[in-house]
Design a protein around this nucleic acid. Structure first.
Length: 424
RNA sequence: GUGGGUGUAGCUCAGUUGGCAGAGCACUGGGUUGUGAUCCCAGGUGUCGCGGGUUCAAGUCCCGUCACUCACCCCA
Protein backbone atom coordinates (compact mmCIF):
# COMPACT_ATOMS: atom_id res chain seq x y z
CA UNK A 1 0.00 0.00 0.00
CA UNK A 2 1.29 3.41 -0.94
CA UNK A 3 0.00 6.34 1.07
CA UNK A 4 -1.07 9.38 -0.94
CA UNK A 5 0.54 12.79 -0.71
CA UNK A 6 -2.09 14.97 1.02
CA UNK A 7 -3.64 17.89 -0.91
CA UNK A 8 -1.33 20.87 -0.58
CA UNK A 9 1.60 18.63 0.33
CA UNK A 10 2.93 17.29 3.60
CA UNK A 11 3.21 19.62 6.57
CA UNK A 12 4.73 19.35 10.01
CA UNK A 13 2.39 18.06 12.73
CA UNK A 14 0.09 20.66 14.28
CA UNK A 15 1.71 22.83 16.88
CA UNK A 16 5.29 21.83 16.09
CA UNK A 17 7.61 24.76 15.36
CA UNK A 18 10.66 24.36 13.14
CA UNK A 19 13.75 26.50 13.38
CA UNK A 20 16.17 27.13 10.53
CA UNK A 21 19.45 28.92 11.07
CA UNK A 22 21.52 29.82 14.11
CA UNK A 23 18.92 31.57 16.30
CA UNK A 24 17.42 28.59 18.08
CA UNK A 25 20.63 26.85 19.04
CA UNK A 26 22.10 30.17 20.05
CA UNK A 27 19.29 30.80 22.55
CA UNK A 28 19.33 27.22 23.85
CA UNK A 29 23.11 27.10 24.23
CA UNK A 30 23.21 30.45 26.00
CA UNK A 31 20.72 29.19 28.58
CA UNK A 32 22.62 25.92 29.02
CA UNK A 33 25.97 27.67 29.39
CA UNK A 34 24.94 29.23 32.71
CA UNK A 35 24.08 25.78 34.09
CA UNK A 36 27.45 24.42 32.97
CA UNK A 37 29.15 27.34 34.68
CA UNK A 38 27.52 26.28 37.96
CA UNK A 39 28.72 22.70 37.61
CA UNK A 40 25.63 20.91 36.34
CA UNK A 41 26.47 17.80 34.31
CA UNK A 42 24.62 16.95 31.14
CA UNK A 43 22.16 14.08 31.22
CA UNK A 44 20.66 12.70 28.02
CA UNK A 45 17.27 11.22 28.75
CA UNK A 46 14.65 9.17 26.93
CA UNK A 47 12.06 11.16 25.05
CA UNK A 48 9.41 8.64 26.11
CA UNK A 49 8.90 6.84 29.39
CA UNK A 50 6.52 4.45 31.10
CA UNK A 51 3.20 6.30 31.35
CA UNK A 52 2.97 5.46 35.05
CA UNK A 53 6.12 7.51 35.74
CA UNK A 54 4.33 10.72 34.82
CA UNK A 55 0.97 9.75 36.30
CA UNK A 56 2.70 9.11 39.62
CA UNK A 57 5.41 11.76 39.44
CA UNK A 58 3.61 14.73 37.96
CA UNK A 59 0.30 14.01 39.67
CA UNK A 60 -2.93 12.44 38.44
CA UNK A 61 -4.93 15.57 39.16
CA UNK A 62 -2.87 17.88 36.96
CA UNK A 63 -4.14 18.87 33.53
CA UNK A 64 -0.79 17.87 32.09
CA UNK A 65 -1.42 14.27 33.08
CA UNK A 66 -5.20 14.08 32.84
CA UNK A 67 -5.63 15.51 29.35
CA UNK A 68 -2.42 16.67 27.70
CA UNK A 69 -0.18 13.62 27.45
CA UNK A 70 0.83 11.92 24.25
CA UNK A 71 0.32 8.34 25.42
CA UNK A 72 0.15 5.20 23.34
CA UNK A 73 0.73 1.48 23.54
CA UNK A 74 3.89 0.22 21.87
CA UNK A 75 4.01 -3.03 19.94
CA UNK A 76 4.72 -4.95 23.12
CA UNK A 77 1.54 -3.63 24.74
CA UNK A 78 3.37 -1.26 27.11
CA UNK A 79 1.81 2.14 27.71
CA UNK A 80 4.43 4.79 27.02
CA UNK A 81 4.21 8.59 27.00
CA UNK A 82 6.19 11.27 25.20
CA UNK A 83 7.73 13.24 28.05
CA UNK A 84 5.60 16.26 29.07
CA UNK A 85 8.26 17.63 31.43
CA UNK A 86 11.78 16.80 32.55
CA UNK A 87 11.91 16.39 36.30
CA UNK A 88 10.21 12.98 36.60
CA UNK A 89 12.62 11.47 34.06
CA UNK A 90 15.68 12.90 35.79
CA UNK A 91 14.54 11.62 39.17
CA UNK A 92 13.79 8.19 37.71
CA UNK A 93 17.27 8.05 36.19
CA UNK A 94 18.93 9.17 39.42
CA UNK A 95 17.14 6.41 41.35
CA UNK A 96 17.65 3.73 38.69
CA UNK A 97 21.40 4.32 38.42
CA UNK A 98 22.01 5.11 42.07
CA UNK A 99 23.40 8.54 41.25
CA UNK A 100 22.25 9.63 44.71
CA UNK A 101 24.65 7.14 46.36
CA UNK A 102 27.63 9.37 45.73
CA UNK A 103 28.30 12.97 46.63
CA UNK A 104 25.28 15.17 47.09
CA UNK A 105 23.72 17.18 45.63
CA UNK A 106 23.50 15.47 42.28
CA UNK A 107 23.52 18.38 39.83
CA UNK A 108 22.22 17.62 36.34
CA UNK A 109 21.07 19.63 33.36
CA UNK A 110 19.19 18.60 30.26
CA UNK A 111 17.82 20.03 27.04
CA UNK A 112 15.46 18.85 24.35
CA UNK A 113 11.87 18.49 23.20
CA UNK A 114 8.82 17.92 25.38
CA UNK A 115 5.28 17.15 24.32
CA UNK A 116 1.86 18.28 25.45
CA UNK A 117 -1.36 17.81 23.55
CA UNK A 118 -2.72 21.35 23.77
CA UNK A 119 -4.40 23.77 21.40
CA UNK A 120 -1.50 25.71 19.83
CA UNK A 121 -1.29 29.44 20.41
CA UNK A 122 1.34 32.17 20.47
CA UNK A 123 4.19 30.67 22.51
CA UNK A 124 2.34 27.42 23.18
CA UNK A 125 3.33 24.37 21.18
CA UNK A 126 2.69 20.67 21.19
CA UNK A 127 6.39 20.06 20.84
CA UNK A 128 8.17 22.51 23.09
CA UNK A 129 11.85 22.91 23.81
CA UNK A 130 13.22 23.26 27.31
CA UNK A 131 16.49 23.67 29.10
CA UNK A 132 16.32 22.37 32.65
CA UNK A 133 18.41 21.67 35.73
CA UNK A 134 17.84 19.54 38.83
CA UNK A 135 19.88 19.57 42.05
CA UNK A 136 18.92 16.55 44.11
CA UNK A 137 19.76 15.39 47.62
CA UNK A 138 20.38 18.53 49.64
CA UNK A 139 17.68 20.67 51.22
CA UNK A 140 19.56 23.96 51.41
CA UNK A 141 17.99 27.34 50.61
CA UNK A 142 21.32 28.41 49.11
CA UNK A 143 20.78 25.73 46.47
CA UNK A 144 17.32 27.12 45.68
CA UNK A 145 18.94 30.51 45.22
CA UNK A 146 21.64 29.05 42.98
CA UNK A 147 19.06 27.45 40.71
CA UNK A 148 17.21 30.75 40.47
CA UNK A 149 20.42 32.65 39.79
CA UNK A 150 21.38 30.24 37.00
CA UNK A 151 18.04 30.78 35.23
CA UNK A 152 18.22 34.53 35.73
CA UNK A 153 21.79 34.64 34.40
CA UNK A 154 20.66 32.74 31.30
CA UNK A 155 17.95 35.26 30.50
CA UNK A 156 20.34 38.11 31.22
CA UNK A 157 22.95 36.58 28.91
CA UNK A 158 20.35 36.57 26.15
CA UNK A 159 19.97 40.29 26.68
CA UNK A 160 16.44 40.04 28.08
CA UNK A 161 15.28 42.76 30.46
CA UNK A 162 11.50 42.90 30.31
CA UNK A 163 10.86 39.98 32.63
CA UNK A 164 10.42 39.52 36.35
CA UNK A 165 11.02 36.67 38.74
CA UNK A 166 8.05 35.81 40.91
CA UNK A 167 8.59 33.62 43.96
CA UNK A 168 6.60 32.20 46.81
CA UNK A 169 6.62 29.22 49.13
CA UNK A 170 4.11 26.40 48.90
CA UNK A 171 5.02 25.17 52.38
CA UNK A 172 5.78 21.62 53.43
CA UNK A 173 3.97 18.47 54.52
CA UNK A 174 3.61 19.61 58.11
CA UNK A 175 1.20 22.49 57.44
CA UNK A 176 -0.03 22.14 53.87
CA UNK A 177 -2.91 19.71 54.69
CA UNK A 178 -4.39 22.10 57.26
CA UNK A 179 -4.02 25.03 54.91
CA UNK A 180 -5.66 23.08 52.14
CA UNK A 181 -8.67 22.41 54.34
CA UNK A 182 -8.95 26.04 55.29
CA UNK A 183 -8.76 27.10 51.63
CA UNK A 184 -11.38 24.52 50.67
CA UNK A 185 -13.77 25.88 53.31
CA UNK A 186 -13.20 29.38 51.95
CA UNK A 187 -13.77 28.36 48.33
CA UNK A 188 -16.99 26.51 49.16
CA UNK A 189 -18.60 29.82 50.12
CA UNK A 190 -17.82 31.48 46.78
CA UNK A 191 -19.99 31.82 43.70
CA UNK A 192 -18.11 29.69 41.17
CA UNK A 193 -19.00 27.90 37.95
CA UNK A 194 -19.12 24.14 37.80
CA UNK A 195 -15.68 23.65 36.18
CA UNK A 196 -13.99 25.82 38.78
CA UNK A 197 -15.84 24.03 41.61
CA UNK A 198 -14.54 20.77 40.26
CA UNK A 199 -11.04 22.21 40.16
CA UNK A 200 -11.42 23.38 43.76
CA UNK A 201 -12.37 19.85 44.74
CA UNK A 202 -9.41 18.20 43.01
CA UNK A 203 -6.76 20.80 43.78
CA UNK A 204 -7.98 23.91 45.61
CA UNK A 205 -4.63 25.69 45.26
CA UNK A 206 -5.06 25.79 41.50
CA UNK A 207 -8.09 28.09 41.82
CA UNK A 208 -5.89 30.82 43.28
CA UNK A 209 -4.28 31.75 39.98
CA UNK A 210 -7.54 32.07 38.03
CA UNK A 211 -7.22 35.16 35.84
CA UNK A 212 -10.88 36.00 35.39
CA UNK A 213 -11.73 39.31 37.14
CA UNK A 214 -15.02 38.03 38.60
CA UNK A 215 -13.11 35.17 40.24
CA UNK A 216 -10.14 37.29 41.29
CA UNK A 217 -12.47 39.68 43.08
CA UNK A 218 -13.78 36.90 45.29
CA UNK A 219 -10.28 35.68 46.06
CA UNK A 220 -9.06 38.92 47.61
CA UNK A 221 -9.50 37.61 51.15
CA UNK A 222 -8.52 34.02 50.40
CA UNK A 223 -6.18 32.41 52.91
CA UNK A 224 -2.66 32.20 51.47
CA UNK A 225 -0.11 29.45 51.95
CA UNK A 226 2.59 32.01 52.60
CA UNK A 227 0.76 32.94 55.85
CA UNK A 228 0.51 29.31 56.95
CA UNK A 229 4.10 28.15 56.67
CA UNK A 230 5.70 25.93 59.29
CA UNK A 231 8.57 27.52 61.18
CA UNK A 232 11.14 25.63 59.15
CA UNK A 233 9.48 26.41 55.81
CA UNK A 234 9.28 30.08 56.76
CA UNK A 235 12.95 30.08 57.73
CA UNK A 236 13.82 28.36 54.45
CA UNK A 237 11.87 30.97 52.48
CA UNK A 238 13.54 33.85 54.32
CA UNK A 239 16.96 32.35 53.67
CA UNK A 240 16.26 31.96 49.94
CA UNK A 241 15.35 35.63 49.69
CA UNK A 242 18.46 36.61 51.62
CA UNK A 243 20.66 34.59 49.26
CA UNK A 244 18.94 36.10 46.23
CA UNK A 245 19.76 39.53 47.55
CA UNK A 246 23.39 38.50 48.02
CA UNK A 247 23.45 37.14 44.47
CA UNK A 248 21.97 40.33 43.09
CA UNK A 249 18.92 38.56 41.69
CA UNK A 250 15.82 40.71 41.90
CA UNK A 251 12.39 39.18 42.47
CA UNK A 252 8.85 39.96 43.52
CA UNK A 253 6.75 37.88 45.87
CA UNK A 254 3.55 36.46 44.42
CA UNK A 255 1.69 34.50 47.09
CA UNK A 256 -1.09 33.61 44.61
CA UNK A 257 1.27 31.72 42.34
CA UNK A 258 0.51 28.05 41.79
CA UNK A 259 2.38 25.47 39.78
CA UNK A 260 0.79 23.11 37.30
CA UNK A 261 2.65 20.09 38.62
CA UNK A 262 1.79 18.58 41.99
CA UNK A 263 5.24 17.77 43.30
CA UNK A 264 6.36 21.26 44.30
CA UNK A 265 6.94 22.25 47.93
CA UNK A 266 8.56 25.22 49.63
CA UNK A 267 10.29 27.47 47.09
CA UNK A 268 8.29 27.92 43.91
CA UNK A 269 8.99 30.41 41.16
CA UNK A 270 8.17 31.59 37.70
CA UNK A 271 9.88 33.91 35.25
CA UNK A 272 7.28 36.08 33.54
CA UNK A 273 7.90 38.14 30.42
CA UNK A 274 5.58 41.06 29.71
CA UNK A 275 5.86 41.10 25.92
CA UNK A 276 4.61 37.67 24.98
CA UNK A 277 0.82 37.89 25.16
CA UNK A 278 -1.04 35.33 27.19
CA UNK A 279 1.69 32.66 27.32
CA UNK A 280 3.98 34.82 29.41
CA UNK A 281 5.91 32.28 31.47
CA UNK A 282 9.42 31.82 30.11
CA UNK A 283 10.59 29.56 32.91
CA UNK A 284 9.49 28.05 36.17
CA UNK A 285 10.26 25.51 38.81
CA UNK A 286 10.86 25.00 42.49
CA UNK A 287 11.67 22.56 45.24
CA UNK A 288 10.15 19.12 45.55
CA UNK A 289 10.40 17.21 48.83
CA UNK A 290 8.45 14.04 48.19
CA UNK A 291 9.16 13.15 44.57
CA UNK A 292 12.23 10.95 45.06
CA UNK A 293 10.40 8.80 47.60
CA UNK A 294 7.20 8.84 45.54
CA UNK A 295 9.12 7.29 42.65
CA UNK A 296 10.71 4.61 44.82
CA UNK A 297 13.98 6.23 45.82
CA UNK A 298 15.49 7.63 48.99
CA UNK A 299 13.51 10.35 50.73
CA UNK A 300 15.60 13.20 49.36
CA UNK A 301 14.63 16.74 48.44
CA UNK A 302 15.42 18.34 45.09
CA UNK A 303 15.16 21.67 43.34
CA UNK A 304 15.13 22.58 39.67
CA UNK A 305 13.72 24.60 36.80
CA UNK A 306 12.55 24.27 33.24
CA UNK A 307 13.08 27.16 30.85
CA UNK A 308 11.08 27.52 27.64
CA UNK A 309 13.50 27.89 24.77
CA UNK A 310 10.71 28.66 22.26
CA UNK A 311 9.37 31.43 24.45
CA UNK A 312 12.81 32.79 25.29
CA UNK A 313 13.42 33.07 21.55
CA UNK A 314 10.11 34.90 21.08
CA UNK A 315 11.05 37.22 23.95
CA UNK A 316 14.39 37.95 22.27
CA UNK A 317 12.53 38.93 19.11
CA UNK A 318 10.13 41.15 21.05
CA UNK A 319 12.98 42.89 22.85
CA UNK A 320 15.14 42.89 19.74
CA UNK A 321 17.84 41.35 21.89
CA UNK A 322 21.10 40.36 20.24
CA UNK A 323 20.18 37.14 18.51
CA UNK A 324 22.97 35.30 16.82
CA UNK A 325 23.20 36.41 13.21
CA UNK A 326 26.58 34.80 12.64
CA UNK A 327 27.52 34.26 9.02
CA UNK A 328 27.48 30.72 7.68
CA UNK A 329 31.08 30.80 6.48
CA UNK A 330 34.18 32.96 6.58
CA UNK A 331 35.52 32.27 3.09
CA UNK A 332 33.69 31.68 -0.19
CA UNK A 333 35.29 30.24 -3.32
CA UNK A 334 34.44 31.67 -6.78
CA UNK A 335 35.76 29.42 -9.58
CA UNK A 336 35.83 30.51 -13.23
CA UNK A 337 35.83 27.43 -15.41
CA UNK A 338 36.33 23.73 -14.78
CA UNK A 339 40.11 23.75 -14.27
CA UNK A 340 39.79 26.48 -11.65
CA UNK A 341 36.99 24.62 -9.94
CA UNK A 342 39.08 21.45 -9.69
CA UNK A 343 41.79 23.40 -7.94
CA UNK A 344 39.45 25.44 -5.72
CA UNK A 345 37.63 22.36 -4.42
CA UNK A 346 40.95 21.24 -2.95
CA UNK A 347 41.72 24.65 -1.46
CA UNK A 348 38.30 24.92 0.20
CA UNK A 349 38.83 21.44 1.62
CA UNK A 350 42.22 22.50 3.03
CA UNK A 351 40.62 25.55 4.64
CA UNK A 352 38.00 23.38 6.32
CA UNK A 353 40.67 21.00 7.60
CA UNK A 354 42.38 24.05 9.10
CA UNK A 355 39.18 24.84 11.01
CA UNK A 356 37.98 27.65 8.77
CA UNK A 357 34.33 27.69 7.74
CA UNK A 358 34.32 27.74 3.96
CA UNK A 359 31.99 27.14 1.02
CA UNK A 360 32.10 27.63 -2.74
CA UNK A 361 29.87 28.38 -5.72
CA UNK A 362 28.58 25.10 -7.10
CA UNK A 363 26.75 24.48 -10.32
CA UNK A 364 28.91 26.32 -12.82
CA UNK A 365 27.41 29.74 -12.19
CA UNK A 366 28.71 32.81 -13.98
CA UNK A 367 31.08 35.15 -12.21
CA UNK A 368 28.36 37.60 -11.35
CA UNK A 369 26.10 34.95 -9.88
CA UNK A 370 28.97 33.36 -7.97
CA UNK A 371 29.96 36.72 -6.48
CA UNK A 372 26.35 37.25 -5.47
CA UNK A 373 26.39 33.90 -3.70
CA UNK A 374 29.63 34.93 -1.96
CA UNK A 375 27.96 38.11 -0.77
CA UNK A 376 24.93 36.26 0.54
CA UNK A 377 27.02 33.70 2.40
CA UNK A 378 28.20 36.41 4.75
CA UNK A 379 31.83 35.46 4.11
CA UNK A 380 34.54 37.98 4.92
CA UNK A 381 36.69 36.92 1.97
CA UNK A 382 36.06 35.62 -1.52
CA UNK A 383 38.68 33.50 -3.27
CA UNK A 384 38.42 34.12 -7.01
CA UNK A 385 40.26 31.73 -9.31
CA UNK A 386 40.30 31.76 -13.14
CA UNK A 387 42.47 30.67 -16.08
CA UNK A 388 44.67 33.74 -15.85
CA UNK A 389 45.40 33.14 -12.19
CA UNK A 390 46.16 29.46 -12.74
CA UNK A 391 48.77 30.37 -15.36
CA UNK A 392 50.30 32.94 -13.01
CA UNK A 393 50.20 30.53 -10.08
CA UNK A 394 48.04 32.98 -8.12
CA UNK A 395 44.59 33.31 -6.62
CA UNK A 396 42.67 36.51 -5.93
CA UNK A 397 41.79 37.16 -2.27
CA UNK A 398 38.98 39.70 -2.16
CA UNK A 399 37.89 41.46 1.00
CA UNK A 400 34.11 41.57 0.67
CA UNK A 401 33.74 44.24 3.32
CA UNK A 402 35.76 46.96 1.58
CA UNK A 403 36.07 45.55 -1.95
CA UNK A 404 39.86 45.48 -1.96
CA UNK A 405 41.62 42.57 -3.64
CA UNK A 406 45.11 41.14 -3.71
CA UNK A 407 46.79 38.26 -5.52
CA UNK A 408 48.34 35.58 -3.34
CA UNK A 409 50.35 32.51 -4.28
CA UNK A 410 48.31 29.43 -5.07
CA UNK A 411 50.71 27.24 -3.13
CA UNK A 412 50.02 27.74 0.53
CA UNK A 413 46.88 29.78 -0.20
CA UNK A 414 45.01 28.21 2.72
CA UNK A 415 47.66 29.36 5.20
CA UNK A 416 47.63 32.87 3.72
CA UNK A 417 43.83 33.04 4.06
CA UNK A 418 44.15 31.91 7.66
CA UNK A 419 46.55 34.78 8.34
CA UNK A 420 44.27 37.28 6.59
CA UNK A 421 41.34 36.18 8.75
CA UNK A 422 43.37 36.58 11.90
CA UNK A 423 44.44 40.09 10.86
CA UNK A 424 40.95 41.23 9.97
C1' G B 1 -12.04 21.26 25.08
C1' U B 2 -14.64 26.69 24.01
C1' G B 3 -14.88 31.33 21.18
C1' G B 4 -13.11 35.18 17.46
C1' G B 5 -10.00 36.37 13.05
C1' U B 6 -7.44 34.81 8.58
C1' G B 7 -6.36 31.37 4.22
C1' U B 8 -4.40 34.34 -3.32
C1' A B 9 3.30 33.24 -6.19
C1' G B 10 9.00 31.14 -2.01
C1' C B 11 7.73 35.87 1.44
C1' U B 12 4.40 40.40 2.45
C1' C B 13 -0.07 41.41 0.45
C1' A B 14 -3.82 43.89 -3.46
C1' G B 15 -7.93 41.97 -6.23
C1' U B 16 -14.40 46.97 -7.10
C1' U B 17 -21.83 45.42 -7.43
C1' G B 18 -19.53 37.85 -9.48
C1' G B 19 -16.67 39.01 -15.78
C1' C B 20 -8.97 37.15 -18.72
C1' A B 21 -4.84 35.95 -11.70
C1' G B 22 -1.86 40.95 -9.94
C1' A B 23 2.14 44.15 -7.29
C1' G B 24 6.48 44.59 -4.31
C1' C B 25 10.33 41.75 -2.31
C1' A B 26 13.09 37.36 -3.18
C1' C B 27 15.06 34.02 -6.95
C1' U B 28 17.52 32.95 -12.03
C1' G B 29 19.76 34.97 -16.37
C1' G B 30 21.52 39.15 -19.13
C1' G B 31 23.38 44.45 -19.68
C1' U B 32 29.51 43.81 -18.31
C1' U B 33 32.05 34.68 -20.70
C1' G B 34 37.34 38.58 -14.49
C1' U B 35 34.05 40.78 -9.70
C1' G B 36 28.98 41.14 -4.90
C1' A B 37 25.80 44.53 -1.66
C1' U B 38 23.52 50.29 -6.53
C1' C B 39 21.11 50.74 -11.47
C1' C B 40 18.63 48.85 -16.13
C1' C B 41 16.34 44.69 -18.97
C1' A B 42 14.28 39.84 -19.25
C1' G B 43 12.20 35.24 -17.10
C1' G B 44 9.30 31.60 -14.23
C1' U B 45 6.00 29.65 -10.92
C1' G B 46 -0.36 29.68 -8.63
C1' U B 47 -4.87 22.91 -7.34
C1' C B 48 -6.82 31.44 -5.32
C1' G B 49 -6.37 25.90 1.62
C1' C B 50 -9.66 21.49 0.34
C1' G B 51 -14.72 19.49 -1.01
C1' G B 52 -19.53 20.53 -2.49
C1' G B 53 -23.53 24.13 -3.97
C1' U B 54 -25.79 28.62 -6.62
C1' U B 55 -24.72 30.88 -11.57
C1' C B 56 -23.95 31.54 -18.60
C1' A B 57 -19.69 32.79 -15.42
C1' A B 58 -17.03 32.08 -8.49
C1' G B 59 -10.62 34.27 -5.75
C1' U B 60 -15.40 37.01 -4.94
C1' C B 61 -21.90 34.45 -2.87
C1' C B 62 -23.73 29.86 0.27
C1' C B 63 -22.66 25.15 3.06
C1' G B 64 -19.11 21.87 4.94
C1' U B 65 -14.15 20.78 6.14
C1' C B 66 -8.93 21.47 7.14
C1' A B 67 -5.00 24.61 8.41
C1' C B 68 -2.95 28.88 10.55
C1' U B 69 -3.68 32.60 14.17
C1' C B 70 -5.34 35.23 18.71
C1' A B 71 -7.94 34.74 23.25
C1' C B 72 -10.30 31.47 27.13
C1' C B 73 -8.42 27.28 29.58
C1' C B 74 -3.68 25.42 30.82
C1' C B 75 1.38 26.15 31.18
C1' A B 76 7.69 26.52 29.82
Amino acid sequence: MTAAVPPGGFSAPKGVPEYVGPEFTSVRDTLVREADRAGYAHIELPVFEDTALYARGVGESTDVVSKEMYSFDDRGGRSVTLRPEGTAGVVRSVIEHGLDRGGLPVKLRYTGPFFRYERPQAGRFRQLQQVGVEAIGVDDPALDAEVLAVADAGFRALGLRRYRLEITSLGDATTRPQYRQELTRFLEKLDLDEATRERARINPLRVLDDKRPEVREQLTDAPLMIDHLSDSAAAHHAAVKRHLDDLGVSYVENPWMVRGLDYYTKTTFEFVHDGLGSQSGIGGGGRYDGLMAELGGQDLSGVGFGLGVDRALLACRVEEAGLDTASRVEVFGVPLGDAAKDRLVGIIGALRRAGIRADLAYGGRGLKGAMKAADRSGARFALVLGERDLEAGEIQLKDLADGSQQAIALDGAAAAVDRALEDS
